[in-house]
Computed example of a mutant assay.
Amino acid sequence: MEAILEVYHLPYDPYYPVVYMDESCKQMIGEVRDPIPCKPGQPARIDDEYVRNGVAEILMEVEPLAGKRHVVVTERRTKKDWARQIKQMLDERYPNAIKVRLIMDNLNTHGIASFYDTFPPKEARRLAERLDIHYTPKHGSWLNMAEIELSVLKGQCLERRIADMTTMQTEVTAWEKDRNDRTRKIVWQFTTADARIKLKRLYPQL
């Protein structure tokens, strides 16, 4: 926890950007009957019955100090999917970065081995050398700012029924553009000093 918090308070450096990554999912739900739009004196009406159309996987990547985020909506969440997304992040969104300081949880797909399962060894090593990975501790997902951004995404964009992958990707892309155009940042205030006071139960008693 303290190692993560120290990374959070590093000054902005475009050559060593701090990027947070997290994943979630959203069930795609279709309507059995068309909703009835609202009209004066009457709210919109939606039938309780619905159709399940599968689950969309959401990968959130956010750089709070720059006010940037990138969201990917896919059908799967495998090691190879993660590896391809990280390659795209490094080569397209951070081509000039010497190393990307990547904060994420310790999911079994989130590792250097995923590069070697996906790319030739030379390419896998190239990607690995451009990452400085910091894993959040067990039960410490609240330390990842990408979780905050995922919560905003769900509240502003995914709070309603969305029936199919194409519509969801379109809606999420529009949300991402609006957030980036506004340069929305996250101001993190919890420090190591705060942790030693408020979470002292986690520390050994010497």
Rank of each mutant, 00 (worst) to 15 (best):
residue 93 R to V: 12
residue 52 R to M: 14
residue 57 E to F: 00
residue 81 D to L: 08
residue 163 A to W: 11
residue 43 P to H: 03
residue 157 C to W: 06
residue 206 L to R: 15
residue 92 E to T: 07
residue 122 K to M: 13
residue 199 L to Q: 08
residue 100 V to H: 05
residue 203 Y to F: 15
residue 158 L to V: 10
residue 62 V to R: 02
residue 63 E to V: 03
residue 37 P to T: 08
residue 77 R to T: 04
residue 14 P to F: 06
residue 19 V to Y: 08
residue 64 P to Y: 01
residue 23 E to W: 06
residue 202 L to W: 02
residue 130 R to I: 14
residue 9 H to R: 13
residue 205 Q to I: 14
residue 163 A to R: 11
residue 174 A to T: 02
residue 49 E to C: 05
residue 97 A to N: 03
residue 41 G to K: 09
residue 181 D to S: 13
residue 114 S to N: 00
residue 201 R to Y: 08
residue 18 V to Q: 14
residue 101 R to M: 15
residue 117 D to Q: 00
residue 55 V to I: 12
residue 35 P to H: 04
residue 197 I to D: 03
residue 200 K to C: 14
residue 170 T to N: 12
residue 97 A to T: 03
residue 60 M to V: 14
residue 92 E to I: 06
residue 167 T to Q: 04
residue 166 T to E: 15
residue 152 V to S: 07
residue 79 K to D: 08
residue 42 Q to Y: 09
residue 86 I to H: 01
residue 206 L to E: 15
residue 40 P to H: 09
residue 144 N to P: 12
residue 202 L to N: 07
residue 118 T to S: 05
residue 153 L to T: 04
residue 29 I to A: 11
residue 145 M to G: 09
residue 166 T to S: 15
residue 186 I to C: 01
residue 102 L to R: 10
residue 123 E to D: 05
residue 41 G to M: 07
residue 196 R to V: 11
residue 86 I to K: 02
residue 128 A to M: 10
residue 191 T to S: 15
residue 43 P to G: 01
residue 199 L to V: 08
residue 108 N to L: 09
residue 20 Y to V: 03
residue 184 R to S: 12
residue 157 C to E: 10
residue 65 L to R: 09
residue 187 V to E: 11
residue 188 W to N: 07
residue 16 Y to V: 05
residue 188 W to S: 08
residue 201 R to K: 10
residue 100 V to P: 05
residue 65 L to M: 10
residue 60 M to N: 10
residue 56 A to D: 09
residue 116 Y to N: 13
residue 180 N to V: 12
residue 158 L to G: 03
residue 17 P to T: 07
residue 200 K to S: 15
